[in-house]
Design a protein around this nucleic acid. Structure first.
Length: 819
RNA sequence: GGUCCAGUGGCGGAAUUGGCAUACGCGCACGACUUAAAAUCGUGUCCCGUAAGGGAUGUGGGUUCAACUCCCACCUGGACCACCA
């Protein structure tokens, strides 16, 4: 008997599968299609992470099972290769990013191939390939043509030491990722994509897809839709019609306003500030500009300064002082809030600090209906406590609010909004936390934004026939000191003729963010070599939507939202056939180190998949990662656990000795086999890989008890194993003389009749406590079961002559005798 | 601070229309094989108790014939968001 030589076996079958082109699906095949997608990797210098292996092995098992079930399966792979880590690494090592990228991809490719994943390598894509980013740029131009891409002055993170603009990803808790200096805010002209236009649809269409509730809530929270009222406060004594518009979800507290607070960035700060206050206000604004995000976040104390001006509360014509405070977010709701200290904690803090009046206008509803002492007790005395509190933030009933007294908060919001609308001093409004997407990066390693700035014509898009705008190969790709993209210094590339007037013009030098290429890559897989379109519509129609998309939890907000946005945009242009790209999304948990920390080079706790493959083989690595725990939960790596799976595969290898063509079929074996078919079928579909593996272990424990194993049973076992351990099952399949690959075989079906056993274990409980398990025939009647239970010696002893009060019988399961 | 999720042996975990708690694996102990070790195989392994029996799924309460599972309160841990008016 030859030893389990995984090295030899795995290499042999990987070559065979590749040569035969096993995993290349045909477009328009008559078989039903399945498009299974994993987030394509970022080929970093660290090489493949065992976390990649977890996700890819899981979806590979699913893909393989679906093929066996007769589906035409697309399971593609590619590289998301533009971006900062590569650029930084290139700067550090002095090697050009394009070379680094090539090297990294080569490493990743070798590592992935050593795992025997059933990717269709003929559809491999690379976001840094001009043939690919041509279409990324083309899609950007479509955004531009429809007014969804525009330029705006936007604050960015600025590192004062490195003198460069940083992307959010480069700012680690308020500090520059490279030098550790605290970052500041600076305003720069940036390209923006109008994702906010799609905000409502991005929420609503979540109803049409199968994402886990967690993911849906995250998306909804991120978009942060809130319904409220916009209300105008006229500036007092200005003689003009100047006003400040504020947004509030609590218009029911309008009568409680004791100040208006505007953000330091607000346009009117200058004009509102009176002479006496000018110096103080200016100082305050300067100070808050210098504050980094970190400081703004850490320092939760509300500060502000009085401008000297007043405005008029449209509800009661009261004069209200206007303050400037940096706790007001400039980019949300117009950058101004009405301050109601009695009903908002932040406003309360602010009012306390500056001794502003606190006016109560909402009280807990329970209080109004309280007539007797008994009621006070019934409401837990809580209402009383809340009345005493100076700040009550819940809904209640209105007081001190003129005509609106006695209304519930909910009703009052409607009534007051209507009142303001009549007065033309306000209206219903919806606001979002979601901002438009800052689409510019002042970095080298990204897709150039295909725009030309002409002295005469202004912003001119690069004509489509000139695409792609290739990223020039240059020696200097370091970010510049001016905050401009390094591309700006390449005069030859920058200076061009205007496509419209042929006059003097310059190229846009900003590049796209890392998210650009990944916002549509799943479409390119469908038609990766098309030179005329980003993908053929008929092919898109055949393959879309993606049936299952898996990736990390860290991408469930940004990447998922961005790509859904692009897809909807393309749908509106009738360029893709589906409203949503992904009909189902699942996320896998992180693989942590044995010490429960994140794997990192500096901690020296990284597990290199290569080493596991070398020592135990790809099948062991893959199956261990499936077995380690629930797929969607974070889990610690365990070297001991790997050994357990390796032992299992060795037992599988040994099993062939016992296989006899005409071995007897035993009833127990048949039952457990069919049960296992059922379990594996369901578990793999439901992504419960850990229990799927455990069932295979249970099955082998059972089969191994026999002296001889029936060949047909053995074949079924190998088929069940095939998606999870594709190499060993293929090898053993060939060794029993099968000519066709096991991966082209049909997925086994189970016979419900064979799962049913002749007898079952009847559990007998007394007062809910398990006392005895007896074997009973499957079809036993209730009366018979009761008799059987009561006739047991042990049960009689427990009853000791007492008559049961009640006997509960659950068919096929248990009897509970209540005494 | 908000939202969501979780808490079961020495460890990873299993068990959901409420019905045998601890499947499967790891670890550990003992045994077989071996000159020996590794590997492999076998047996045992929640706690207390010689046993009969009793106790145990973060804590306390509730519903039920029956609760890891449902309800209420609390404790602990994690993830994401975080001054969004």
């Amino acid at each position: 008997m030859v030893k389990y030589n995984f090295k030899k076996i795995e290499r042999k079958w990987q070559n065979f599968w590749e040569k035969e082109g096993f995993y290349q699906p045909k477009d328009f095949d008559k078989k039903p299609k399945k498009y299974i997608l994993i987030e394509f990797p970022y080929p970093s210098g660290d090489g493949l992470h065992v976390g990649h292996v977890r996700s890819y092995s899981a979806l590979d098992a699913l893909a393989r099972k679906k093929r066996m079930e007769g589906y035409n399966v697309l399971y593609p792979i590619g590289w998301d290769a533009f971006g900062l880590p590569t650029e930084n690494y290139a700067i550090k090592k002095g090697i050009h990013p394009s070379i680094i990228t090539k090297q990294n991809i080569a490493v990743f490719k070798r590592q992935l191939k050593s795992l025997g994943l059933s990717f269709d390598w003929t559809r491999e894509i690379n976001t840094t390939d001009p043939d690919y980013y041509k279409w990324t740029q083309w899609i950007f131009l479509q955004f531009f043509k429809r007014g969804l891409a525009y330029q705006a002055e936007m604050p960015i993170n600025w590192c004062p030491k490195c003198k460069i603009g940083l992307a959010n990803e480069e700012v680690v808790s308020g500090k520059c990722e490279r030098c550790g200096a605290e970052t500041e805010r600076r305003t720069i002209k940036q390209w923006m994509l109008k994702i906010t236009k799609y905000a409502d649809r991005l929420i609503e269409d979540l109803d049409k897809v199968d994402y886990s509730e967690k993911i849906k809530t995250q998306q909804i929270n991120w978009i942060g839709r809130s319904e409220g009222t916009e209300v105008d406060f006229k500036i007092a004594d200005s003689g003009s019609s100047a006003k400040i518009t504020v947004f509030t979800t609590r218009i029911d507290t309008l009568f409680g306003v004791t100040a208006l607070v505007i953000s330091p960035e607000h346009q009117l700060t200058e004009t509102l500030t009176t002479k006496e206050n000018r110096k103080k206000v200016k100082e305050y604004i300067e100070a808050s500009k210098k504050k980094s995000d970190l400081e703004r976040e850490e320092n939760k104390e509300k500060t502000g300064v009085f401008t000297g001006s007043y405005c008029i509360n449209p509800a009661n014509e009261e004069k209200v002082p206007i303050w400037v405070g940096d706790y007001v977010v400039a980019t949300y709701g117009g950058g101004a809030v009405m301050m109601v200290p009695s009903h908002d904690y932040r406003d309360y803090d602010f009012a306390k600090k500056y001794n502003l009046p606190i006016k109560k206008v909402v009280i807990p509803s329970a209080l109004l209906h309280m007539t007797t002492n008994a009621d006070t007790v019934a409401s837990g005395g809580k209402a009383e406590l809340r009345l005493e509190a100076e700040c009550f933030v819940d809904d209640g009933e209105l007081i001190n609010s003129g005509n609106f007294n006695g209304l519930s908060s909910e009703k009052a919001r409607e009534e007051i909004t209507r009142f303001l609308e009549k007065k033309e001093a306000g209206k219903k409004s919806v606001k979002y936390k979601l901002r438009d997407w800052i689409f510019s990066r002042q970095h080298y390693w990204g897709e150039p934004i295909p725009i030309i700035h002409c002295e005469k014509c202004g912003i001119v898009p690069v004509p489509e026939y000139d695409l792609p705008v290739e990223l020039p190969y240059v020696k200097k790709y370091k970010p510049t000191n001016t905050g401009e993209s390094p591309l700006a210094s390449i005069k030859k590339w920058v200076n061009v003729k205007c496509p419209k007037c042929k006059g003097k013009a310059k190229r846009e030098t900003d590049t796209m963010p890392n998210w650009a290429g990944s916002s549509w890559y799943f479409l390119r897989y469908i038609d990766p070599k098309n030179g005329k379109k980003f993908a053929d519509f008929k092919k898109l129609k055949y393959w879309l939507p993606i049936d299952l998309y898996n990736g990390g939890m860290e991408h469930t907000t940004l990447h998922l939202l961005y790509s859904r946005f692009w897809h909807k945009f393309l749908y509106d242009l009738k360029l893709v056939p589906t409203l949503e790209a992904y009909s189902a999304r699942r996320s896998h948990g992180m693989v942590l180190a044995e010490d429960a920390k994140k794997m990192s080079k500096s901690l020296g706790n990284v597990i290199n998949p290569d080493e596991i493959v070398k020592k135990f083989g790809a099948d062991t690595l893959r199956m261990y990662e499936m077995f380690m725990g629930p797929f969607d939960q974070a889990i610690n790596w365990s070297n001991q656990g790997v050994v357990g799976v390796f032992r299992f595969l060795n037992r599988v290898w040994q099993l062939q000795k016992k296989v006899k063509k005409d071995a007897n079929q035993c009833r127990e074996c048949e039952t457990i086999l069919h049960k296992s078919v059922k379990k594996l079928s369901e578990d793999i579909d439901n992504m419960k890989f850990n229990t799927a593996v455990s069932q295979l272990m249970i099955l082998i424990n059972e089969m191994d008890k026999e002296i001889n194993i029936n060949l047909d049973n053995y074949k079924i076992f190998l088929k069940l194993l095939a998606p999870l351990a594709p190499h060993i099952s293929e090898e053993l399949w060939a060794q029993i003389g099968e000519k066709k690959s096991i991966h082209l075989e049909g997925w086994p079906k189970y016979d419900p009749a064979k799962i049913k056993e002749n007898t079952f274990d009847l559990v007998i409980q007394i007062n809910g406590k398990m006392r005895l398990v007896v074997s009973a025939p499957t079809g036993i009647k209730e009366e018979e079961a009761k008799e059987l239970a009561l006739s047991q010696e042990r049960i009689k002893r427990f009853l000791s002559g007492k008559t049961p009060m009640k006997i509960i019988y659950i068919s096929g399961k248990l009897i509970n005798i209540v005494i």
